[in-house]
């Protein structure tokens, strides 16, 4: 039977795994078999998968916040319906991924508390502002496009519950991406004012999209556990290159210019110039662009992004407001986390 109970996590990082069981486990992965929650798992696999699934779940529910703000301001009824459906999808993805995480040994309430008290993280990309409708279009085109590329690679992974969830999620992400593409096309084939709105939003989201795939590869990343155990199947840099090759030509066709930008602390572009490194390499068939500012990436992860406080503040507010619901359904067992 599948479906483990919520046991407390006791992680011993120095644990010596039984070499026989470990070999059996690795042979299963090499043979392309899916790993299930009740199979024997190395401790590092369990903690690694939990960290990954929990981070993904956190990102889905925080990711709904910048877009949720725009539901009331959508420019037409059809766009409003679509955006509402998208936000509903994202929160649903969070639910599915918390469920996967629970089976790896952490309770849902602990995960929700760890998120709002800053113990665990969510995806960096959601710490940037979405000041116009153009940002909503670019998020759905670039970020959801990046998410599909990433999640399609994750759907080739080895952990059964996560793989099955990715497949389900990707079907819904295809709608988000296609809808985003439709919005971007509408903007970029619209009035001069609409095209400026689109370009400005593109300038704000281009670099966060490149950073979406995570920091540059470590030289030995293919031999480290995340890839050896097929928790990930494609490296960050390879995914980033696929993204660049897919989106640079599309941006050019749409009349979008690729800029290197300097941003203020609140995430608005204060200086920009055409990317001097943009070119197509015939021999490798790859597009080259200027690398993201990785110092900015780490600064935002550590809490120094334009919207970190705002996003967590809203999530915390909503957790506190939902207290009565948890009390009602959990028979009085719901408390509040310590003040931040």
């Amino acid at each position: 039977m599948s479906g483990s109970s919520n046991v407390g996590m006791h992680i011993d990082h120095n644990v010596q795994e039984d070499p026989e069981k470990l070999a059996e486990f690795e042979a299963k992965i090499d043979a392309g078999q899916l790993i299930e929650p009740d199979d024997w798992l190395p401790q590092a696999y369990r903690t690694g998968m939990l960290k990954m699934a929990e981070h993904h779940a956190n990102s889905e529910i925080i990711g709904a916040l910048p877009e949720g703000e725009w539901i009331t301001r959508a420019p037409s009824l059809r766009r409003k319906l679509a955006l509402t459906a998208k936000v509903q999808d994202e929160v649903g993805h969070g639910q599915m991924l918390y469920r996967v995480s629970q089976d790896l040994g952490k309770t849902r309430d602990q995960m929700l508390r760890d998120l709002i008290t800053g113990v665990t993280k969510y995806h960096n990309v959601f710490n940037y502002p979405a000041p116009t409708w153009g940002d909503i279009a670019m998020i759905q085109w670039l970020i959801d496009g990046a998410a599909i590329m990433n999640q399609k690679s994750l759907a080739d992974g080895a952990y059964g519950p996560y793989v099955r969830t990715m497949k389900r999620i990707n079907m819904e992400e295809a709608f988000h991406f296609k809808c985003g593409e439709d919005m971007v096309l509408t903007l970029m084939s619209g009035t001069a004012q609409q095209r400026v709105l689109g370009q400005d939003a593109f300038d704000r989201w281009w670099y966060p999209s490149l950073m979406f795939f995570g920091p540059p590869d470590k030289p030995n990343c293919r031999n480290l556990p995340p890839m050896r155990w097929r928790m990930k199947t494609v490296t960050n840099d390879d995914l980033r290159q696929r993204f660049i090759n897919r989106f640079v030509p599309a941006a050019k066709d749409l009349g979008l210019k690729i800029h290197v930008v300097k941003k203020s602390d609140d995430g608005m572009v204060i200086e920009k110039q055409l990317d001097p490194n943009l070119h197509y390499d015939e021999s490798t068939e790859n597009w080259t662009v200027t690398d993201p500012d990785w110092e900015e990436f780490y600064r935002v992860i550590r809490g120094g992004g334009p919207c970190n406080k705002q996003r967590l503040g809203l999530r915390r507010f909503s957790y506190e407001q939902g207290r009565w619901v948890r009390i009602a359904i959990m028979n009085g067992r719901a408390g509040l986390p310590p003040a931040a």
């Binding site: 295809a174 709608f175 809808c179």
Partner: peptide
């Protein structure tokens, strides 16, 4: 409006 194919033609 909530399916990818709803946008394919447009």
């Amino acid at each position: 409006y909530r399916l990818a194919r709803g946008y394919a033609k447009g």
